[in-house]
Every structure is written in C-alpha cells, then in structure tokens.
Amino acid sequence: MTQAATVTERPARPGRGVALLRRPEVGAFVAAFGIFLYFSISTSAFLTPAGVATWLYSSSLFGIMAVAVALLMIGGEFDLSAGAMTGTTGLIVGIATTQWGLNIWLALVLALAAALLVGAFNAWLVTSTGLPSFIVTLATFFILQGLNLAVTKLLTGTVAIQGLGAVTGFDQARVLFGSSFPLFGMDVKISIVWWILLTGLATWVLLRTRFGNWVFAVGGQAASARQVGVPVRRVKFGLFLTTAGAAWLVGMLQLFDVSTVQATTGIGQEFVYIICAVVGGCLLTGGFGSAVGAALGALIYGMALQGIVFAQWDSNWLKAFLGGMLLLAVLVNLWVRRQAGERS
C-alpha cells in the first residue's frame, strides 16, 4: 500500500461548488438577493431612498443583535434573554434620567453595567452548572420581562417612559445613538453604521484572532478545546458579555431614535435574532457560522418586514415567512454539512 493509493481512495474532493457552499453565508446571500429583487419589482416604495433607509434601519437593529447572538451560537450557547435586555437597558436609562434626574451619561453607564451583570449571571450559571443555556436564559428572559413591566409600572404608573427629549445632555448622546446623515438622497440612521462596523469587527475577531478560533473550538467540541488548553469558561463569559453589550447598544439605539421606551420593548425578538443567525448559516449545535451570514439574515428579515408593509399585505404573513425561511435554512445547513462537513 502506498501513500498515493490511500490519498486517492478517499471519495472525490468536494468540487469548487461545494467548497463555496462550505461558506456559511452563501445561502443567506442568495436569499437576500432574491427578496430584494422581489420587493423592488413588486412594490414602488421599496427601492426609493426613503424605502431603502427604512428597511436598512429595521435590519440594523436586528442585525447588531443577530451578529452577537451568532457569535454566541458558534460558541455553542443560546441567549433567550437578549430581546428583553434591549428593553431593560432602555428602561433603566429612561427611569434614571426622567425619574431620578441622573446625568444621562451616568445613566448610560448604569444601563451597560446592568446588562453586563445579567450577561455575566447567564454565563456564570451556564458554565458552573453545565445546564443548557436554553433553559438558563429562558429563565432570565422571563425574569427580565416581568421586571421590565412591574418595575416600570411601580415607578411611573404607566408601561411606557416618555419625555426623554427634555433631559439635559439628550441631544449630545443622541449624536452617538439617534442621529442620521444624508447619503445618496437617503436619510441614513447612525444605527446602520454601527451595524456595519460591528459586523466587520465580529468577522475579524472570528476569523483572525485567537479568541475567534477558540469560539469555533468551544462550540464545536468543548472537551477537545479544553484538552489543548483553550480557556472554555472564559470564552463563554466573553460571548455572553458580548450579547449583553449588544443588547445595551440596541436598547440605546431604539431609545434615542424615538425618545420613548415601552416596557414591552424587545419581547419576542430573541427568536428573531436566533432565526437570523441560523438563516445566516449558524448551526444550532455550535461550531459553525459567520457574522456576515447573521447580518444577511437580519437584512432578509428587515427587507421582508418592510416589504410586506410596502406591498400592503396583512402583516401576519411575516411570521409565516419567517418560519418558512428558518425551515429552509436549517435544511440547507444540514445538506451543506453532509456534503462538506463531518465524517465523524
């Protein structure tokens, strides 16, 4: 038996097509392009500057979270509390400034600290008990959802906080989180810039840093990663804190956009983030996926969300569409993995 014989006896090398499909975000790219074409042709508003700015803004809010959630999922964990956390952070800033008269910058820091604390709590529970993060963060999700409503009602008597526009320093902070600038006739909101920057940063971290390498390893095979000296626990902490930080950012972006915040903000969106990540090629089992894919997943969702409005369909179609996309994505992922992935 010779070396050459053993090398060639293996099933033929995956062709160029499969090598391309091995990239997690390819499916999402094709789908995004298709949906873009569809709504561009079938509605008149979709491709206008105002239309584009609208669906890009929608996509950006989901996209920032989806990218963070994708990193976490590649690392093998879920965070169902991420949606409620965007509400919690907004409410904290709202209450601290309008009710207690706290300086707005201090309130921002306070909200960030609270989000990171929840993230650290999630990470600590998951890593020290070994319980599935799905259950742990489902619990924190309900706790946050309850607190958001109960505490807001207790302190303000209503379920929404208004009047942030009158707070001193609001306009300065708004430059970071709620401003917009003209570009190609569009009124581009700053959150779109955040979304693009963070997607780029996440991609760089994932593919070009040690931490990114460890994220893939921890999600792919934690026991092996531990054996070769990867600090599994630290990586998971980093990922949960990243999700929490992203939830804070999105909370601020929403708050400064409309200068009010509802106690129900973010509820129900945790699954949208996960769906965007999966549509973007993340495996539910961890160890595989991409930030660009998750950003594309969010773009698909944002385009569909606004496209359905422009087409004047019943908005309930959106949920059915979302479910269909998810199913399709999971099937495509399964197929790709069988083609290019594990022999195990």
């Binding site: 893939f216 792919g220 095979q221 092996s224 070769v228 160890g287 594990e342």
Partner: peptide, 10 residues
C-alpha cells in the same frame, strides 16, 4: 488520547 482532542468542523 483516543479522542485526539480535535474539533471536526474546524
């Protein structure tokens, strides 16, 4: 060791 400490998808 027998499990080789490898991550299959990497």
């Amino acid at each position: 060791y027998q499990d080789l400490a490898l991550v299959p998808l990497l």
